[in-house]
Design a protein around this nucleic acid. Structure first.
Length: 142
DNA sequence: GTTTTGACTAGGT
DNA sequence: CACCTAGCCAAAA
């Protein structure tokens, strides 16, 4: 739990944005950051998800916020210091049909298939395309 | 109280 | 291609 109202608002914004990610798709921390008007705070997006409550009594919790659909812009599942957490993360994604490969102990999502980025194309690093513009869906942003 | 860390990313060397 | 830096800001130490 955040220690200020502003932080709380930020957390809520993150959770709401994450809820918009469709089943079987993934997006990046940076994308969420853009959506909530803080394009330079992808780390804080990670903070918010890290502190997402597991207790269903909360407005936002593991049950209604698909935190696992958020990964690094490179397609890598971060969790540097917590391999088991990353494994759970990967497993949850596989359950949605997302292809996750384990290369040398590092987990990363296969973005080439239909279970790639949301929106359809994301950073050049991942899909090799342009960001969607206002026509498609999200106003964007990179 | 202060300092360090971290579920990041873009841009530069 | 690998590595480094700046920016961001809440948590944890």
């Amino acid at each position: 739990m955040p220690h200020s109202d502003e932080a709380t608002a930020f957390f809520v914004a993150v959770y709401e944005a994450v809820q918009e990610i469709p089943y079987g798709k993934v997006t990046s921390y940076g994308h969420i950051a853009h959506l909530i008007g803080k394009p330079q705070c992808p780390r804080q997006v990670g903070q918010a998800l890290k502190h997402l409550p597991a207790d269903p009594a909360n407005t936002f919790h593991h049950g209604n916020v698909p935190w696992q659909r958020v990964i690094a812009a490179s397609g890598v599942i971060p969790r540097r210091d917590n391999p088991s957490g990353a494994a759970r993360h990967a497993q949850a994604l596989r359950g949605e049909g997302v292809v996750v490969t384990t290369t040398g102990g590092g987990l990363h999502v296969d973005l080439s298939g239909e279970h790639g980025w949301f929106p359809n194309v994301l950073p050049s690093k991942g899909g090799g395309g342009d960001w969607v513009n206002e026509e498609t869906m999200f106003p964007v942003l990179f």
